[in-house]
């Protein structure tokens, strides 16, 4: 189990690094998909099977395909992205390392309070999540419809803008 965790973590981190540091956008997207699959693997390890499936379907399936589609549409894969000045990069990496060190030190400083004794097995199956989602969390579930409505309205408005402008 630990081995599996370590392998998946290594895969996650490496592919994440790959996303950030490759110039080619296509490679970047592909390694992001790898990263998402690795995280889905973690979910399986954590017995959150439903979320693992959703992760694969929504993220690796839908969102990343949307990304790839946009890349193709804009024809961005041809020219490699120009990079920011080196000094800026160093500063950015430094800042992020600092944040990381801060977070890790916080984790270790409060270690005895974070590490809990393991409890009875959990299983994030659909049968467990479903009632919760549609009983206790029914209202936020409905509220997400406002989110989607406004997203749809906005997308249509912006998307149709060019057409109307051309007509006139």
């Amino acid at each position: 189990m630990v081995t599996l965790f370590l392998v998946l973590s290594l895969l996650t981190v490496l592919s994440a690094l790959c996303v950030v540091f490759t110039r080619n956008l296509i490679y970047s997207v592909l390694s992001l998909i790898v990263c998402f699959f690795a995280i889905a693997g973690h979910y399986v390890l954590l017995k959150a099977s439903f979320l693992a499936v959703i992760q694969v379907i929504v993220y690796a399936g839908a969102i990343m395909v949307l990304f790839l589609f946009m890349l193709m549409l804009m024809n961005l894969n041809k020219k490699a992205e120009a990079s920011k000045p080196f000094s800026l990069k160093v500063v950015a990496v430094g800042v992020c390392l600092l944040v990381l060190v801060a977070l890790v030190s916080i984790v270790f400083l409060s270690a005895p309070r974070v590490c809990f004794a393991p409890l009875a097995p959990v299983s994030g199956s659909v049968s467990a999540l479903g009632p919760l989602l549609f009983n206790e969390y029914a209202i936020p579930f409905e509220l997400t419809s406002i989110l989607f409505l406004s997203a749809v309205a906005g997308v249509v408005m912006i998307g149709s803008y060019g057409k109307k402008a051309k007509k006139q």
């Binding site: 989110l147 406004s150 997203a151 906005g154 997308v155 912006i158 060019g162």
Partner: peptide, 17 residues
């Protein structure tokens, strides 16, 4: 926060010209 923000992102850009 997201329900507030997503319409705002669009509205800020609504003057497409």
């Amino acid at each position: 926060i997201e329900i507030l923000s997503i319409p705002l992102y669009v509205l800020v850009g609504s003057q497409g010209d």
